[in-house]
Amino acid sequence: MIKALAAEIISRLNKRVLLFITGGAVNIKEVFTVLRENPLASYGIVMSEAAARVIPGEYIESLKGKIIREKSEMTGEINRADLVVIPVMTRNTLSKVSLGIADNLVTLGISEAVMMNKKILVVKDSFDPENPVNISLGYTKNKYYNQMLLNYCERLKNMGIEFTDAGQLNERLRHALGIKFESSKPPKAEKKIISNILTLEDLLGMGKGHVELCLEGGTKISPLARDYIESNGITIKYLREKE
């Protein structure tokens, strides 16, 4: 009887989350870590062809979710979902969904979720023209293109979709699922990079603001990496004096 009661309680606590994943790459390590470490979510996963090529397979496997490939099955999952999450939304997907274009399983599924008025949470890092990574990569130099993306984002907000960045995903995800927790300031983290040259690629998986970056003395920093460090408030500490 106790086992049956425990199983019933767990089943009620467990939340059904449907993920629509596209082929972006900005801050995906941080995003998938948050998803993987959420103990009360059961995932269904719909991926675009680009996502299958770009997102590391181990990230998807770590979620232990059910991959959905058929439209009829996807519609059923949307109906049952407590929350729809788009952990990676590209500029392409943002534009299509905001214009009502549904030309693949992911855009069709997001459109159906909007029409069903489901609770939808989107991580905006991959398309956001204000994201430091996109700025460092030189993708935000055309202010009119940037404004177009922001207008699409605002249109989806008016439809009830919520947006967050990777750094706030854990808090927003738990809030959306009704999971109470005590927030605390994240501890200072250190990342030691043993390398002659620090590049932007080395930095993309790091957090923001609270990170102390440890470098070997004499390590050179590429221009894009330096822009990213300055934009994200990362502190540099050399393990020994630079030569």
Rank of each mutant, 00 (worst) to 15 (best):
P87E: 12
N131L: 08
I55W: 06
K188C: 11
E230I: 11
E154L: 11
F163T: 00
F32A: 06
G138M: 13
T219C: 13
L19V: 05
V114M: 04
I161E: 07
E112M: 00
L105M: 05
K119R: 13
P39N: 10
V85D: 05
I28M: 06
E190D: 08
V97W: 02
I68N: 05
K124A: 10
E37W: 14
V34T: 09
K64N: 14
V211Y: 10
A4R: 06
K66V: 08
S183Q: 14
T93G: 01
L19I: 05
E130S: 12
L121I: 04
S95M: 07
Y238T: 05
G207D: 08
L63N: 01
I60L: 10
T90P: 04
M47G: 00
D103V: 00
Q168F: 15
E243I: 13
L215T: 02
K15T: 02
S42P: 00
I135T: 05
K15E: 02
L19N: 02
G218I: 05
M206G: 05
I194C: 12
D227G: 01
K192V: 14
I135K: 04
S62F: 12
E243T: 11
R16D: 08
E216G: 02
L105I: 02
V34F: 13
M148N: 06
I110Q: 00
E49H: 04
I120K: 00
S72G: 11
N38K: 12
I9Q: 10
Y145W: 14
K141R: 15
K143E: 15
N196L: 13
T107M: 02
L5P: 01
K66F: 10
N38L: 15
G44S: 08
K141I: 12
Q147V: 06
E49C: 03
V123W: 05
L169W: 08
Q168D: 15
A41M: 10
R36E: 15
I197E: 13
E241H: 09
I234W: 10
K29W: 07
A50T: 07
L169E: 13
K29M: 06
G44P: 02
K220F: 11
K157T: 07
S195L: 09
Y152S: 08
I9G: 03
D125I: 04
V211N: 10
V85S: 03
I78F: 01
P187H: 10
I86R: 02
K185Y: 11
K157E: 15
G138Q: 11
K157G: 10
I193R: 00
L94G: 00
V46C: 03
E243P: 12
E77C: 00
I45E: 02
L169A: 09
Q147R: 11
F181D: 08
M159K: 05
M115L: 13
R80H: 11
E73P: 00
S11Q: 12
I221M: 07
F163Q: 01
M148K: 05
Y152I: 04
R240E: 15
P186C: 08
N14A: 08
E241R: 05
A102S: 04
A81M: 03
G217T: 06
K15H: 09
R172M: 15
Y152G: 04
